[in-house]
Amino acid sequence: VLGHYLRRQQDPEDFIREIKFIASDPDEKYFFNVTDEAALNDIVDALGDRIFSLEGTHGVNESAFELEMSQIGFSIHHLEDGILFGMVGAHDWEGGVLEERQRGRVVPARGAFREEFPLQLRNHAAYLGYSVSSLQLPGGQRLLVAGAPRVQHKGQEKG
């Protein structure tokens, strides 16, 4: 998006050459020139599918990742009897969490957060697990909290 250059009446050619050099070949498939940031919404799904399919999954659904891209431990929070891990890359970068306690390991399934993050709130990279924490509620119950800073590109936290 060249808005920064165009608003300042600067020549973006050097910048364009650098981006084309960085982008995968052929440029026609991986380099897009759009008029403004809103136009990116039209190509984000196509780009996401192309990027994911390069990352090593094969088979019927080449662009679907479960835990392969997880960055477990990106964030961690110490619990009284274990650790809560953020898993930013899980589930096509929607993200996730892993709870490791003395009584066992809990890895919520991909659909576990559908109520908190319905389809209309999701995108390719919500990054659930970017931050994790917990709260002690009155009555002794502990609430586990995970941040998702890219939900609708605004962010959201859920417990």
Rank of each mutant, 00 (worst) to 15 (best):
E99L: 13
R110L: 14
T57L: 09
A38G: 05
A146M: 00
V145F: 01
D49V: 15
R114N: 13
Q120S: 08
R7S: 11
E62V: 15
G129E: 02
H91W: 15
G89C: 08
L6M: 13
R122I: 01
D36K: 12
S133L: 06
R150T: 04
S134E: 03
D49A: 13
Q10E: 14
L135Y: 00
Q102M: 09
G111P: 01
P149D: 07
E55L: 15
Q120F: 14
E80R: 12
S24K: 14
E66R: 12
V145M: 01
Q152W: 11
L84V: 00
V106N: 06
L79P: 01
H77R: 06
L47T: 12
W93G: 02
F65P: 05
G104M: 02
E99K: 05
R8E: 09
L135T: 00
E13N: 08
V151N: 01
G59W: 15
F74M: 12
S24A: 12
E28Q: 14
V106F: 11
I51A: 12
E18P: 01
A112K: 05
R110V: 15
S63T: 15
H77Q: 08
H153E: 10
V88A: 08
F15E: 06
D81T: 06
L144V: 04
A38V: 12
A148P: 09
F31Q: 04
F21L: 07
L121N: 03
M69W: 12
